[in-house]
């Protein structure tokens, strides 16, 4: 038996044991599905939800909120990070503003999200944006500040004569691995903001919305189903992004680091 199958088997065994313990605790010790739904309650709820057919719509709506927030965070965070990392003046100008806004918890923006955007998809996107923007900005900024000088100088002697060319052909590719890790962190934060962003009724679908809706209906097995789906989708997003980055974008980087 090789390492990989050993790892899989042990992992699966532990999962089964955890599920059995959960089932025993839920049925024989707690005994009330409202307080702790059992594994079978949750499985049943999952099958019912599959039948009723909104799971897919929920996932799509949530991904839409998430996508809007993340894309907005990328479109603003990367360029501002580049400006601040490359141009001293931009750094001096923007740094105080950023330092004041950054410690504000993303969810504290919810009131203004509603006032500015109403109960819309954009409002949910804005909350996710508030969570994802700063990790992307700071990662881009510090990645640009740590581009090795010799690369920039090599670029200059080889004919990059504008800041734009140096950024486009030297600094950005050099900074990309660090920016990609920043984006991964931002996606994690953004996904965590999703449940809260969908809490205040911007839509009648969405994984976060359904979580709250089923809580109000006291359908706790359904709540657990949505919790697990939130976890799985979050994991899948992270995996897909990481695989894409490692395989396509940054094949060179794997060989450069320990």
């Amino acid at each position: 038996m090789n390492r990989q199958t050993q790892k899989r088997l042990l992992g699966a065994a532990a999962l089964v044991v955890a599920a059995v313990i959960w089932q025993i605790v839920a049925v024989y010790i707690v005994g009330r599905s409202f307080i702790l739904p059992s594994v079978t309650d949750v499985a049943e709820a999952f099958v019912n939800l599959l039948g009723s057919g909104t799971l897919l719509t929920d996932a799509v709506v949530s991904l839409e909120h998430f996508g809007i927030g993340l894309i907005a965070a990328l479109l603003l965070g990367v360029p501002i990070g580049i400006l601040m990392g490359w141009f001293r003046v931009a750094d001096f100008l923007l740094d105080p503003i950023i330092e004041i806004l950054r410690p504000i918890p993303p969810l504290a923006w919810i009131p203004f999200a509603i006032i500015w955007f109403g109960l819309t998809t954009q409002a949910a996107g804005f909350v996710i944006f508030a969570g994802a923007f700063f990790p992307i900005l700071t990662a881009t900024y510090s990645a640009f500040r740590s581009v090795p000088k010799v690369f920039v100088e090599a670029g200059k002697v080889l004919g990059c004569d504008t800041s734009f060319e140096l950024i486009r052909y030297v600094a950005l590719p050099a900074a990309l691995p660090a920016i990609a890790s920043g984006i991964r962190i931002a996606m994690g934060v953004g996904w965590m903001c999703l449940v809260a962003a969908e809490m205040f009724g911007v839509s009648n679908y969405g994984l976060g919305y359904q979580l709250w809706h089923n809580y109000y209906l006291h359908q706790m097995p359904n709540v657990v189903v949505y919790m697990l789906i939130l976890g799985f989708v979050g994991l899948a997003i992270d995996r897909i992004f990481r695989n894409y980055v490692d395989a396509r974008l940054l094949r060179w980087h794997a060989g450069e680091v320990a």
């Binding site: 100088e153 030297v170 590719p173 990309l176 060179w252």
Partner: peptide, 8 residues
């Protein structure tokens, strides 16, 4: 020192 662009 080493100055090749590692991403190219």
């Amino acid at each position: 020192e080493y100055s090749l662009f590692p991403w190219r």
